[in-house]
Amino acid sequence: MRAPAPAWAADLNGETIEAVRATLGTALIDAVDQVGEVALYVERDAIVTVLTALRDTPGLEYQQLMEIAGVDYPDRPERFEVVYCLLSLTRNHRLHVHVSTDDVKPVPSVTGIWPVAGWLEREVYDMYGVLFAGNADLRRILTDYGFRGHPQRKDFPLSGFVEMRYSEEAKRVVYQPVQLAQDFRNFDFQSPWEGAQYVLPGDEKGMVPEAKGAPTPLKADEIVKADAPSKPQAGSTTHEPKTTDSTAQTGAGEPDPGNQRQDKPRDSDVVPTKGGGQNQ
């Protein structure tokens, strides 16, 4: 019968930091509890000794190397950090080991402890340019052959240095300097629910009430009710209404209200066809 997996416990962080301080000694620069996880900052040249002790020391036993990540801090003298993510299967606990370096000083390779580190170190080298002493196959792994620069550096341009395309003349993929069809555009990510601080074309239509009682962004003295009579503008002439309740302007009772037979022209502009009608 298999033993149940150990349950995760929050108080393991304090016990782990105490055990690490007693085990690593001067190789440990600092050990902190950050966002619920243990982060160890160690000397670069002692990384192999540190990781071996974390793997083999009873009470620590971090058997698996889960990931090697790179971080770029351009303002620091040693701008890069290499982060080793470890997992203890027996304790069901994780921690991070940090070392600092630059693009010249190599970090000792840990492929002798975990062979999987070979591919992970290649990723950090490809993305950041960090060198690893002792890696027998330190080549690019994510970018193409002949790629210039390291994409995850903060000073690497978003467009890169070169671009590739298929050439019909050469019948192969060719590389050429980057040529942007248009400049980078500025996008507005402001939430429309919070209200924009500018007026776009067409927004003035929304400044007029749609119906009686409809909500409006106008001030109280600018609101015009939908059923209120319109005021004539300055300089305009007043016209009589088109409709009236009186029969004086309707033509009722007049002897010739218009549109009689004798009022029609004798010669019509439309000549009937043989069928007897203009639509035949």
Rank of each mutant, 00 (worst) to 15 (best):
V208H: 14
R44V: 11
P151L: 01
T16C: 08
N259I: 14
Y198A: 10
Q152S: 14
A214V: 09
A5L: 14
K154Q: 15
R139F: 15
P58F: 05
T244Q: 13
F156P: 09
T23N: 00
F80R: 02
L180M: 08
E194Y: 08
S167V: 09
P6F: 06
R2F: 08
T26K: 10
V208P: 03
E81S: 10
A22W: 02
P201G: 02
P201M: 00
A9F: 10
G14F: 09
T238A: 12
H96K: 15
P257D: 06
T273C: 00
V99A: 13
Q34P: 01
G213Y: 11
V110W: 00
V97S: 05
R122I: 04
P192E: 07
R148Y: 07
I223E: 00
S191F: 05
S167K: 08
S236Y: 12
G276V: 06
D263W: 09
E222V: 05
W193K: 12
G213Q: 10
E18H: 11
T111Y: 10
E67A: 14
W114H: 15
R185M: 07
P58N: 04
G258L: 07
V42R: 02
V35D: 11
G149H: 00
G70F: 02
G59P: 07
L40N: 05
R261Y: 15
Y84D: 02
T111M: 14
S159M: 08
L142I: 04
E123W: 07
K154R: 15
S268G: 14
K171Q: 15
A252W: 13
T57G: 01
S268P: 10
T237W: 09
Q64M: 05
S100N: 09
Q260G: 11
V208W: 11
L200E: 07
L28E: 00
A117F: 02
Q260M: 11
E240N: 04
T238M: 13
P265D: 01
L158W: 15
M207H: 03
K205G: 10
L180K: 07
I141R: 01
V173A: 03
V42W: 01
V173I: 11
I47L: 06
I17M: 12
V42L: 04
R185L: 09
V270S: 03
T52V: 08
V48W: 04
Y73P: 01
L95A: 00
L60R: 01
Q34V: 10
R261P: 15
K225C: 09
G206Y: 11
Q152K: 13
L65C: 00
D245G: 05
K212T: 11
D227A: 14
D30I: 00
G213W: 09
T238H: 09
G202R: 00
V224T: 04
R2C: 05
P272C: 04
A220L: 07
P77K: 05
T216Y: 02
A248G: 12
V42H: 01
T243Y: 15
P217H: 05
E240M: 06
S109Y: 00
S109L: 03
W114L: 12
